[in-house]
Amino acid sequence: MNTPQGLKYASTDEWLKVEGNIATLGVTDYAQDQLSDIVFFEVTVEVGDEIKKGTIVATIESVKAAADVALPASGKVIEVNEALANSPELINSDPFGGAWMLKVELTDPSEVESLMDAAAYASYCETRGH
């Protein structure tokens, strides 16, 4: 299982890549593996929306399961990866790259500090097994 360094991780299996006060959101390799073959992806917010921490911002469906993607830190949506809806399988093949979902301008960058780092998230996944 891949858990890149330098990202921040939520216990609900999202990752955030933080650059200044801009954060990019996606879901982890662990999450895509649990869902298996992903066939649908939809962002449920729009550019300009002010989103509170923990709000559902996207939905993923695989053949056998469905998952909601929450934003683990508050912010304003500044960009949505429109291409991902047409190739949701990228979430399986490239969860930390092409499958980024949206970018937000963080309201309070300190919120990110409570998230896990790569090592903590990797051991958190260990405890949950498969």
Binding site: V39, F40, E61, S62, V63, K64, A65, A66, D68
Partner: peptide, 13 residues
Amino acid sequence: TLTAREQHIRREK
């Protein structure tokens, strides 16, 4: 198909 929309998977959602 598209069963992931249905109650047995999404439950209260």
